[in-house]
């Protein structure tokens, strides 16, 4: 999910423990990838070989899976991730202008991180908050009816 990327560096034993913890599941790969990302804030490269071996797939197949999904990152994000909804219901309530203004103010493009490492901005396509649009999510906290003032406060709180 969208855990705060912690400072923890990926150690081989932590990686092995995470793999072992989910290995018994049917279709264990996505649960393992989520757990790795929750622990390390990204899918660390040193996890690729042991994971491929444990699941008896090639590293190329593993890379194919990781890169297919928008959620999985190859490198850590900023200390917080702000997801701004770009989908239709939010657009109907001025979401596109809000997103544009936010990116412009931070001098970022989608997926970009502020120079101080405080915040990464990601697009998201619907948060299920379409009746209180426009909506954003910061970490796991949802915010609805976001206007410029509310966005300013959010950015201020995270130090972006």
């Amino acid at each position: 999910m969208h855990a705060q990327p912690p400072a923890k560096a990926p150690e081989r034993e932590d990686i092995d423990a995470i793999i072992a913890q989910h290995h018994h599941l049917e279709g264990p790969l996505l649960p393992i990838l989520h757990a790795l990302q929750e622990a390390f804030g990204h899918i660390p490269e040193p996890a690729h070989a042991p994971l491929a071996e444990a699941l008896n797939i090639t590293r190329a197949e593993l890379h194919g899976v990781i890169s297919f999904y928008h959620d999985f990152r190859a490198a850590p994000a900023g200390r917080q991730v702000l997801k701004i909804c770009r989908a239709e219901a939010c657009q109907a309530m001025g979401g596109a202008a809000l997103a544009e203004a936010t990116l412009k103010r931070l001098g970022l493009d989608w997926h970009g991180t502020t120079p101080n490492g405080a915040l990464t901005i990601e697009p998201v396509y619907c948060l299920g908050l379409c009746a209180c649009a426009p909506a954003v999510m910061i970490g796991e906290r949802v915010v609805g009816r976001v206007d410029a003032a509310r966005m300013d406060r959010l950015l201020e709180v995270v130090g972006a």
Binding site: M1, G27, P28, L29, L30, P31, L33, H34, L55, G64, V65, F68, Y69, H70, D71, F72, V124, Y125
Partner: peptide, 23 residues
């Protein structure tokens, strides 16, 4: 089980592949 941010995984066969740990 938790998805990973792919809209197409709502399509049922794509969803099944995803549950199996595939693209």
């Amino acid at each position: 089980r938790v998805g990973a941010g792919a809209y197409v995984c709502g399509e049922e066969t794509s969803l099944l592949n995803s549950l199996e740990g595939k693209r």
